[in-house]
């Protein structure tokens, strides 16, 4: 699981990895930018619903874009598990493993 914090590590991939350089994290940030409030700083701990100025419709559009970018599907019940960006990174790794 991801540990909250900017230097969080992943166990999911089995490798020590700085989240800020993680390709999934970077892709999520890239897909978030067009949907998030321009003035906010996107960090791994950012809570998507409250910290990034996104409502449920913006989140849905972001998820569609992310799915296209990563070529995977994020089912509804997995989206409902997500609060922070680090949660989402974790979900993506799990889904990739299950695919």
């Amino acid at each position: 699981m991801w540990v909250a914090g900017e230097n969080a590590m992943t166990e999911t991939t089995g490798k020590a990895c700085d989240m800020l350089n993680d390709p999934i994290y970077l892709e999520i940030v890239s897909q978030l930018r067009p949907h998030a409030d321009k003035s906010v700083n996107i960090t791994p701990n950012a809570i998507i619903l409250s910290d990034l100025g996104m409502d449920s419709l913006a989140i849905m559009d972001f998820v569609f874009d992310l799915e296209d970018a990563l070529d995977l599907t994020i089912p509804e019940h997995r989206i409902s598990e997500v609060k922070s960006i680090s949660d989402l990174v974790d979900v993506v790794y799990k889904l990739q493993k299950e695919a």
Binding site: M60, V63, F64, E67, D68, D71, L72, T73, P75, E76, H77, A99
Partner: peptide, 20 residues
């Protein structure tokens, strides 16, 4: 399991089904 596809978008629907 519930999966959404883009509104009125058969191409997006096809992608979701392809992955299943």
């Amino acid at each position: 399991q519930v999966i959404r596809f883009r509104h009125n978008d058969p191409v997006n629907l096809a992608k979701k089904l392809e992955r299943l």
